[in-house]
Design a protein around this nucleic acid. Sequence first.
DNA 1: AAGAGCTACAACCGCGAGCCA
DNA 2: CTGGCTCGCGGTTGTAGCTCT
Length: 435
Amino acid sequence: MGRSASASGWCDEKSSSVKKGPWTPEEDEKLVEYIKRYGHGSWRALPKLAGLNRCGKSCRLRWTNYLRPDIKRGNFSQEEEQTIINLHALVGNKWSAIANNLPGRTDNEIKNFWNTHLKKKLLQMGIDPVTDRPITANNSDNIHNLYYLMINHILSSLAPQLLASSGTCSSLANNNLMMNMNPWGADLMRLHYSDAKIQVLRNILVQQLLSSTSTPNAEAAFNYLLPSYSSSSVHDHIDHEYSRVSINHYNYFPHLQGFGNGGAPIGFVPQNPTHASAQPSNLSSNISGLLKALHDLDHSQPPRAPPVLVPSSGSGTGTSDKLLGYDDHATVFSSTTGSNKICTNNNNNNNRDHSQQLQLGGSSSSYATPTDQLPLLVRSAAPSPETSAANPTVENNISNTTYSTTFEAWGNPPDLMDHDDDATNHSYWKDIFME
DNA sequence: AAGAGCTACAACCGCGAGCCA
DNA sequence: CTGGCTCGCGGTTGTAGCTCT
């Protein structure tokens, strides 16, 4: 099992005689013409049949990543960008899985886009692109982490049925941030992140955080997302889980007192899920309300307004967003703002291991990040010019071949044209979550 | 104007899963 | 059951083109 590619002959046609490197328009034409006529069949046999001095692997890559007629060229839209961020937070570097939710985009393209654009952008926003969590200067004593814990408690308590029974996840145990956060971090991680669906919910929250500006009721959001929630279960579940790890959580996080069982914290008023504030259009303010409530519980460390990304001047390729600093006038929270020190990435956490897990619908390693430094995703600067110089015109009537496998677990992706519609967007995620 | 440095992306490489004889 | 074959995936590299000094 698993012989090396070269040993298998997949790409070992006497490497000296097989051409490598950039494809010429003539080669592209031959490949397209052949596949158009006969389909690719066996990739290994294709080069000879098509009269190409390339290995089959090279042909397949050229076709799937570049010549395929349904490939969408050009810049990624903001919606695509957000989808990538969401999915990456959920599944990690599973580029093919992400690509299957972005019609017309290839795994290679998404991978490149992530490495060259999104990674950088997340870092600028103070989010670790490896863990998808905020980068904090002091991991052991930061209000960020309290928020995580509380949000996580709420999420896991609201959906105990979603928790897999004692499933473990190597990447979770490897999460340095969580491990530094508290001595029982790994245990909590296993408790709280054992179901990928919870990550989806978390991502919904973060998406809302990114655009939230006002303050109402948070629980309504949870009611909307998880109608089966009962407040007493929150309290019970938290107590139970903490007792499991032999620790008195109120000693560590006195702010937790008052959660659940009728003792809802400020701004956390149970509400009928059919209430207007529980509807998708009000979700952002609901989530914002929860975070404000959480923040209000800790007056000693008022969070800052988010860093502001603005498009850099200039145009064309290579243009990237610049981080100007924190916008003290942003109204994410009503509190006064703290210092304007920009959080930098000193957390070179490469421990995340996706290779052993991720099965969608099962364990997942990462999660989105409620934070007091709410990042602002600002549209990238002027679009770069089309990079299609080397891309020959390919007729769009090439018959469909078997180049792609369907990532069925996700079902149909949202209609990209409808992404401005919050309800549509939420219903997509909600459908996945509730499936 | 030139060249050093940087960025973006196409292409390559190696590994491993699935299939089949 | 074993081992060969094919292919897909994720990580890495090479390089053209752009920006900066």
